[in-house]
Amino acid sequence: MNLLPLLIWFSSLAFLYFGFSCFYSDFIIKEFVRYNLVRFRRTTGYLQLLGAIGLVLGLYLQPIVLFIAAIGLSLLMLAGFIVRLKIKDNFLQSSPSFFFAVLNSIIAFKTYTLYF
């Protein structure tokens, strides 16, 4: 069984949820206030939605799109992890961003080794 499509779909669905949450969730809106990054909330949402769509389109159409989307989401989540550490959140609070940074790095690595 090839695990890569499952990981891609899991990440994509999660980022669709996170992306839309950036626009509509009171909790996420308050979190961006807490991070002191209010002006980046919508941009973050758009990038998450774009990355989610890129993962699925890349899976079925062009591996380069999949690779770029996975790298982009990895970097976005790495930045999120750094922000969480900078504002003194503990590792448990920071772990979702770390998890998704690693997950999308794995997707990018597997895509690279399979197609390039």
Rank of each mutant, 00 (worst) to 15 (best):
Y60V: 14
Y112R: 06
A52N: 07
L66G: 06
N2F: 12
L3F: 14
F91L: 15
F91C: 03
S95C: 08
L7T: 02
V65E: 01
R34I: 02
A79L: 11
N2H: 09
L7G: 01
T111D: 06
F18R: 01
Y115T: 12
L59D: 08
K110S: 11
F67I: 08
R42Y: 12
S105K: 08
G51M: 07
C22S: 03
T44D: 10
I28A: 13
R41S: 09
K110T: 11
R34W: 03
F10E: 07
T44Q: 15
F81G: 01
S105Y: 01
S21Q: 07
S94A: 15
L103V: 09
E31M: 12
L16K: 00
F10M: 10
F18Y: 09
V38N: 11
L16S: 00
N90R: 07
L16M: 07
F109V: 13
L73I: 02
Q48P: 01
A70F: 10
M1E: 09
R41H: 05
R39V: 07
L114N: 13
G19W: 11
A52V: 04
V38L: 12
G58I: 11
I87C: 02
F116A: 11
C22K: 01
L3V: 14
L114I: 10
Y24P: 00
F98H: 09
P5D: 15
L7M: 14
I68Y: 06
N36G: 12
L13T: 04
I107T: 12
L114H: 04
V33T: 13
L66A: 06
M77T: 06
E31K: 14
L76A: 11
S105F: 12
L3M: 08
A14M: 05
F67D: 02
F20C: 00
L66W: 08
K110D: 11
I53D: 00
L6V: 14
R42F: 10
Y24N: 12
L47E: 01
F67E: 09
F15H: 15
Q93R: 09
K110M: 14
Y60R: 10
F81E: 02
A79T: 04
L4D: 03
S21P: 00
G45N: 03
S94Y: 01
P63C: 05
L85Y: 01
L55N: 03
Y35R: 15
R84L: 01
L92S: 03
Q93G: 00
S25E: 06
F98S: 14
L78I: 08
K86M: 11
I106P: 08
F67N: 10
I71M: 07
L6H: 07
S25D: 07
D26L: 07
I87A: 04
A69I: 08
L78Y: 09
V102W: 05
I64Y: 05
G19D: 08
I53L: 11
L49R: 03
F116K: 11
R39A: 14
A69P: 05
G51F: 13
T113Y: 15
N90H: 04
I29A: 05
K88L: 06
Y35L: 13
I106E: 03
